[in-house]
Simulated scan of single mutants.
Amino acid sequence: MKATQADLETLASLAPRERLDPWLADNVRELGDGPLIINFLHGGTSNTVFTVSRGGSQGVLRRTPLTPPPWQRQEHNARGAGPESAAAVGCTASACLCSCDDPSVIGSPFFVMERVKGWAPGLTEGDTVNMAPFDCLPYKYGVPFAMVDALVRLARIDYKAIGHADFGRPDRFLDRQVDRWLSQLDSDPELYDYPGRRIPGFDYVTDWLRANQPNSFVPGIMHGDVGLPNALFAPGPPAQVTALIDWELATIGDPLLDLGGFVHSMCDEREPCRVPQHGSLRVDDYPTRQALAPYYAAGTGADPAALDYYMVLATYECLHRGIQGAQAAIGLLPASSGCFFSGLGLRRVAEAQRIARLVEGLPVPD
C-alpha cells in the first residue's frame, strides 16, 4: 500500500532519520551498514511501528504513539523488550535486538526487534480477515487452535529460570484486578477533564467477579492482549503461530486470563444458536469456547473449570478502551475512534454480564 501524506508526516516526526541513523549504526549492527531505510508499518493505540534496515537484516521499531495511554508513558520500553526476549524461549515472540530508554533519540523510549516471517490477520469493520487458505474451511477452523498452541508454549515457560522473576507482581494478582480497572476508569476525569459514564451491567459484573474469584492460580508469563491481529502465522497449512507481537501489556500473572481473553469471542455451546457480536471476529466457522478450553488444559495441565471467570474478567478489562472515548471527547483522537472503542467497551461488558448470568442460571437477553 502506498504511503499517504499522513504516513510520511508521522514517519518524519516519530522516527527522525538524523537522530535514529547514528544510534542504529552504533547499537543494532544486525541491520547492516548501508543507508538507513525506514518504512511506516502501522500505528495503533499502544504502538507506532516502523520497519528499519541498512542493507542487512530487517528490524521492527516500536515506540509509543503521539498520544499514549496513561499506563504506557513510563513503561513502554520495559514492557516491550523484556517479555519479547523471555517468550522467545517458547518460540512465540520475536527477539529484541536492542532497546533505548533515552527519549532524546526519537522523542520516546523504543525498541527494535527482529522481523519474523509470517502473515498477520487483517482488521476490517466487524471482522478479522485471514490470508488464503485460512480464510475458508477446513483451514480456518484450525487458526484458533494454533493460537491456543502458542498460549500453551507461553504458559509452560519457567519465567524464573530465564531471569524474569522480578518482571511482574504475581502475588495477589487476581486480588488486584477489579480494583485496578476501577481505578483506571475513575482516573478519566482527572486525566482528561472527562466526566465518564457508568456502563449498563457494570456493577453486576464487578460484584460477580469479586464473589467468584478462584482461590489460587499458577503464575506465568502473560501476553495481556491476545488476539488474532497480535499474532503472525506460517504461510501454509496447518495453521501455526510463528510469533506473538504487541507485548506492551505483558506481565507475570495468571496465564488463564490470556486464554479467557482469546476464547470469549467464540461461540458458547450453552447457546448453540447464538453468535457473539462483541468482538472483531466472525466466529461461525471457529471452534467453541468449550472446545478450546480442554485443548489448552491438555497442553498445560491447567484446570479449565473456572474459564467463565477468566472470560468475564477479560471482557471487563476492556473498560480501558474507555480511555479512547475520553481522549476523543477532548480532541486527542478522532471522534470515529472514540465511538468505535466506546462501543466496543459497551458490547464487551454486556457479554461479561451475559456469561456471568449463564453461570448463575439466570435469564439472559435474547
Score class of each variant (00 low, 15 high):
107 G>T: 03
120 A>S: 15
224 G>H: 08
331 G>Y: 08
340 F>Q: 00
279 G>P: 08
12 A>C: 08
135 D>Y: 05
131 M>Y: 09
271 E>A: 02
233 F>D: 03
234 A>Q: 01
259 L>M: 09
202 F>L: 08
230 N>F: 10
246 D>P: 04
293 A>Y: 02
73 R>I: 08
19 R>F: 02
93 A>W: 07
31 L>W: 04
8 L>W: 02
139 Y>A: 10
233 F>N: 05
333 L>Q: 12
225 D>Y: 00
282 R>G: 06
240 Q>R: 14
20 L>G: 07
361 G>W: 08
165 A>S: 03
208 W>T: 02
335 A>E: 14
140 K>M: 09
178 V>M: 03
189 P>V: 13
160 K>Q: 12
99 S>L: 09
349 V>I: 15
46 S>M: 10
237 P>T: 10
330 I>Y: 04
188 D>K: 12
144 P>K: 13
217 F>T: 07
323 I>Q: 12
358 L>P: 00
312 V>P: 01
105 V>Q: 02
208 W>P: 00
271 E>W: 01
260 G>I: 11
115 R>Q: 11
1 M>N: 11
42 H>W: 15
359 V>L: 08
3 A>G: 02
97 L>N: 07
317 E>W: 10
171 D>M: 09
59 G>R: 08
220 G>N: 02
323 I>T: 15
275 V>L: 12
54 R>Y: 05
244 L>H: 09
355 I>P: 04
338 G>R: 13
78 A>F: 14
308 D>A: 14
203 D>L: 13
259 L>F: 01
160 K>S: 07
306 A>Q: 15
33 D>T: 04
320 H>S: 06
316 Y>K: 05
252 I>E: 03
197 R>S: 13
195 P>S: 10
203 D>N: 15
269 E>R: 14
351 E>P: 06
136 C>K: 15
311 M>G: 12
15 A>G: 00
273 C>R: 09
187 S>T: 09
13 S>M: 12
248 E>G: 08
20 L>A: 02
83 P>V: 12
276 P>M: 00
14 L>A: 04
149 D>R: 09
190 E>S: 15
313 L>H: 01
323 I>P: 09
329 A>S: 15
62 R>C: 01
6 A>C: 14
235 P>F: 02
105 V>S: 03
76 H>F: 15
294 P>G: 09
24 L>T: 06
118 G>C: 08
41 L>G: 04
37 I>F: 03
347 R>F: 10
359 V>D: 07
111 F>C: 13
121 P>Q: 12
9 E>T: 13
156 R>Q: 13
61 L>H: 01
356 A>M: 07
150 A>S: 05
267 C>H: 10
260 G>K: 02
226 V>Y: 06
166 D>C: 07
138 P>G: 14
281 L>F: 14
249 L>Q: 11
34 G>M: 01
45 T>E: 12
63 R>I: 06
38 I>Y: 01
39 N>F: 03
37 I>N: 09
112 V>T: 09
202 F>K: 06
90 G>A: 07
348 R>C: 11
